[in-house]
Design a binder for these strands. Structure first.
Lengths: 340, 340
DNA sequence: ACTGGCACTCGCGAAGTGGGAGTGCCAGTG
DNA sequence: CACTGGCACTCCCACTTCGCGAGTGCCAGT
């Protein structure tokens, strides 16, 4: 059966009321709070249909209705208009981020800001090394057979590795290596460098061949492949709000999942450009997070995505507000990265 | 009134039983489980005294007794023998830490190990920059007027800063700067460097004076003074064990406190060499942690302390076991830092 | 100084109860 | 045909009652 206009309106009203009050909502209360132009009895009929379709359910016979995960899904996809941020919130974002001194600081502030604005658990992935582009490579001779490779990413992140050379190297050769590496790789995303690094080895003259080979190995193995992804977390205390009504009883599984960086990366790292992804309850693959919802989005300078961020909370969350906030913060941080 | 031998024995039995069972312990159960050579009635008299002295209390009239914070304190100070670690635990420590590849990894593994062994929340302070000694300084010319300063600490931590020079500099001068800086500072603790850095400026010839001045400013301002302290956390899910019996009802204040790095640094960073500090319940200055206890100790290579680590849990925790574990892990990590 | 006995206290879980919110259904109406 | 008002029904929840039993304090006895 197709859901007509009013039934959708009823669903929206149920979701909004339930999110606000945390209590099952009945037909009478609904018509009072929202000005539906019909009687409670009519709403009851609509509710019966919505229940049959799987969008709402009764916790017990003769209690009010509560949205199901499918109900939230429909709400998010079709029924919710994005709430614009209040000017106060916009100001908060600016004020919070404006004093950041370096990349760590930006991430740190961002995650706290998100947690504070949404009152949920916030997660921010550090700008991913592999998706960032290279600003500069520096080669520093430590001894005649050792080099330190320093890579500075466009996002400001700096990584260094030690390289043991097969034999002594001349200062001029180091200079030449540096020139070639920078010429080839600067401006490229790390994830795109492997073929370029291969080419560097090919093109190296016989004298430079051995050191370049070792260097390329280090670049590929430790920078591209093993690029560790880092995660910042804040607002776990928000889980303990709302008594234990959300998350039926125990926070333990949730807290456990939040400690697994692998899980967080899966949830917040797999983001496509300029798309906000919402996972509701059951839609989550992680068993422990079946009673939670996640709002995640990518961020980065311009249309490039260098990492993900988002919030996690009970399925009963204010989706429109959280989506708006996550997007706004992501956008702001992206701009910030573009400048610095 | 002085507490005689047996009364202390009774207190120890109460603490041990309560920690194990999480239930108020009565006189009858006590004489059964521990082989006190007296009758329940005698134990009751002792209990009455212990209660008067403030070491135990009754949750309600005619319930068993529960240790007070003062009771735990007495237990920790006078009554508990340190439990030696089981061979399994020793093996676990080795196996867990042996594969660590770099400093981040060591800290990360350590904090998880601690959380796992103690089943409490674990906290590890990254080796403090300011208390670490310098292994090497590297100066990298980025352009003719820009240097990158890379500092490698004895603990393996690496920090880098950019320095804008007042004017162009020659390669030879960079080499000379590098030589002088390393000669003066290598092997010294960062916290002790300020006078040495001053001296470097004094001793620099007229040509080197301007770049050395700028360099010294950067060293002092961003490495010594603003040496940010970092913290790793794990095992928050352990807070949710034991239902909500510990932490009377809400985890929220605890989780909030754990998110404040300042608080954690205060709790785990203020450690004296080779001393394990135990803070029990009320002894905590932080309001929100009045229902928690903390076991903290310093760690570092040999007798040097480069940071703190420890665990946090309900006042009702197994102090002897946790103290032993924290000490053992700290010692092991210290040795590891000494080698690498 | 310790013990056995005894009356007493009181928290806790089980069982019972009434109120009320909310429902489904149905006959009636524009 | 869509909506409405009325009505009987369901059943959760908060509240009370009640009996049990663990545990106590005290006291007289050894």
């Amino acid at each position: 059966m197709a859901l007509d206009e009013r039934k959708l309106e009823v669903l929206r009203a149920i979701v909004e009321d339930y999110v606000a009050t945390q209590e099952p909502v009945g037909s009478k209360a609904l018509v009072e709070r929202h000005n539906l132009r019909v009687s409670p009895a009519t709403v009851r009929n609509d509710m019966a249909v919505l229940e049959e379709e799987g969008y709402i359910r009764q916790p017990h016979t003769s209690a009010g209705r509560v949205p199901t995960d499918a109900g939230y899904r429909l709400f998010v996809d079709k029924l919710s208009r994005v709430k614009p941020l209040s000017p106060a919130e916009r100001r908060a974002i600016e004020r919070f981020l404006i004093g950041a001194v370096d990349l760590d600081d930006v991430v740190h502030r961002t995650v706290r800001l998100l947690a504070q604005l949404t009152r949920q658990v916030a997660v921010v992935q550090y700008p991913s090394l592999s998706r960032a582009s290279v600003r500069h490579f520096e080669l520093v001779p430590i001894s005649t057979t050792r080099l330190m490779v320093v890579m500075i990413a466009e996002t400001g992140r700096v990584e260094q590795r030690l390289v043991d050379l097969p034999g002594p190297i001349l200062a001029d050769d180091v200079t030449e290596l540096r020139r070639r590496v920078n010429e080839k790789l600067v401006g490229k995303r790390l994830v795109d460098t492997p073929p370029l690094v291969e080419a560097l080895v090919e093109e190296a003259g016989p004298g430079l061949r051995p050191p370049m080979t070792v260097l390329s190995t280090v670049l590929l193995e430790t920078l591209v492949e093993r690029a560790e992804e880092r995660i910042a977390l804040a607002g776990t205390a928000n889980l303990a709000r709302g008594g234990l009504l959300d998350f039926q009883g125990s926070l333990r599984p949730i807290l456990e999942a939040l400690e697994e960086e692998v899980i967080l990366l899966k949830l917040f790292g797999e983001v496509e450009p300029s798309m906000t992804r919402v996972r509701i309850g059951d839609e989550n693959e992680i068993e422990d997070l079946r009673s939670a919802s996640i709002v995640a989005t990518g961020y980065g300078p311009g249309s490039i995505v260098v990492g993900g961020m988002g919030v996690l909370g009970p399925t009963r969350m204010d989706y429109p507000a959280n989506i708006a906030t996550v997007r706004a913060v992501a956008r702001y941080v992206g701009d910030l990265l573009g400048q610095g």
